[in-house]
Design a protein around this nucleic acid. Sequence first.
DNA 1: ATTTAAGTTGCAAACGATTTGCAATTAAAC
DNA 2: GTTTAATTGCAAATCGTTTGCAACTTAAAT
Lengths: 152, 152
Amino acid sequence: MKTCAHKHTGKKQELASLTGRLRRESRKITGPRAAILEILRHYPHPLTNKEIFAELPKGSCDLVTIYRAMQMLEKLGMVKRFDFGDGTARFELVGEGDDGHHHHLICTRCASVVEIEECFPEEIERRIAIANGFTGVTHRLEFFGVCPDCRK
Amino acid sequence: MKTCAHKHTGKKQELASLTGRLRRESRKITGPRAAILEILRHYPHPLTNKEIFAELPKGSCDLVTIYRAMQMLEKLGMVKRFDFGDGTARFELVGEGDDGHHHHLICTRCASVVEIEECFPEEIERRIAIANGFTGVTHRLEFFGVCPDCRK
DNA sequence: ATTTAAGTTGCAAACGATTTGCAATTAAAC
DNA sequence: GTTTAATTGCAAATCGTTTGCAACTTAAAT
């Protein structure tokens, strides 16, 4: 039940390391995939599929291909899906070995995002699990507020 | 920045109290609305619009009317919207004065829901806000795990 | 280098949740 | 009762996401 042992060092992963992970799973390295990974590895924050699409050299690939790529990458544990509550999924690249579990602080005015190190206290989570007889408990947690720039 | 001063006593609200709140906002008490509130006040857990629709005596009202009612009730602060990450909004009636802020523990197998008293520690949240220069910080938090019944 | 089989892609169409336009209806005040 | 603003139902539109399918590559086998 390790939940918070991530070190969010924001260091870019090598593209070779990423394609290697794909190859190991007998996935093909295609133009679209390389392009998508290339975008992801340069961004420190979660991106929506549309945002990835917009960053991609136009014509690189179809939006649907991005949806399919993200589904697959998520299944392989190479990206983590985040939900900011606006009905649009966001994805962030996850380092090898890391489970990607962490949280964000989102500005409700301008939607800027800050990666957060803090996590829900394990001890309290454990207590909640036990009190209700649940096993394998995790959580989804995001913070919202007004950022310095938007505070006018 | 009070976030967790709720008492989740699960006690049903009087229908009269609910309609009173509507009246005060010069909202009309209609058949559909009374029926919807009637359902909500009997359920201790968040319901989707479809679930409310299903509980309603058939023909009571259109699904769209429920969507509109929930939008309005949310704006008046009479219901709170929750997001369990499955792309479907859920609503729970909120007591007068209460802001409805609380969390849930959801079974990933059978989707059963437990209301949770615990909240993210205010002190840590304050620290996060200050560290990043944000104001008016809150959070969205839900727990997921396998319930006793599903643990087989 | 050529073949081959599995994995991929684009495009159109399908989906599910939610919203919107609009004319017909109704609650509540006069 | 009349009047007026709020509300409803129904159809159609939106938005994010998924799926069907035929054409097309990648990577492994020959």
